[in-house]
Amino acid sequence: MQTFKKAWRRNAVAYMFLSPWLIGLLGLSLIPMVTSLYLSFTNYDMFTSPVWTGMENYTQMFEDSKYLASIKVTTIYVMLSVPLQLMFALGVALLLNRGLRGLKFYRAVYYVPSLFGGSVAVALLWRQLFGGEGLINRGLALFGIEGTNWISSPDTALYTLVILAVWQFGAPMVIFLAGLKQVPLELYEAARIDGAGKFKQFFKITLPMISPIVLFNLIMQIIHAFQAFTPAYIVSGGEGGPLDSTLFYTLYLYQKAFTHFDMGYAAAMAWILLIAIAIITAIIFGTSKKWVFYQE
């Protein structure tokens, strides 16, 4: 009886500490998730009651050219920006990790774009940089090259946003740097004695030793890239243009939900996004057994 009372009290105290989180979990995560799953099978405009339409939203998507465009745009964006960003991050981290003086200063300088990158201010700056009379074209003019308006051309607009994402390689770089510092120096000494060159050292020691960090960065950046919104919204003025070339998935979702009030369709889009991210994460985790090296 005594122990039962004690256990009950112990649990009561713990759940008291957890209560704000539990209320949030229930009220702001779980119930909304179930609701959005339900809404995704309905037609709902917020003014009249939801009407059950079964799978209609999900089948309709694949005939919606704008939806398909948003998938294409987002896929290109993720597939280009994430690998490039991680390559820059690792490359610069390797350069910085050579015991240079001023490491902390350099690290700070390279981190600044990550600090500001998500802001409206930087997205606006980007619009100017790559505009017709922007800084980039004025730079190109010095070399006698006449640039176009990169932002208003459907062939190039998306790539300006890829550059904006790659520009923010500072955050994964900081993580790589911390990981590189933990690689034991003895390994390199041993390799040097065995006559292994710089490239061999990188592929046989550095890369395997930091592979868990590569995995972490890869997954975090992919999740992050799939959800990019602010740059596309600001650079295209909320439209996703020109010709839907910057219509990110989340931007189209936003338009559907909060400009057209097509809540059911938008909820279905959100669930497809969730499933896509879950599958991609699962695939990466699945293959990681083959390329991620865990120290015992």
Partner: peptide
Amino acid sequence: AIMLITLMLPFHVTVIPQYIM
């Protein structure tokens, strides 16, 4: 474990019902 999973969730699956609420 549930807390860790919520870390990975895109907030778009909750934002629409939250807005309605």
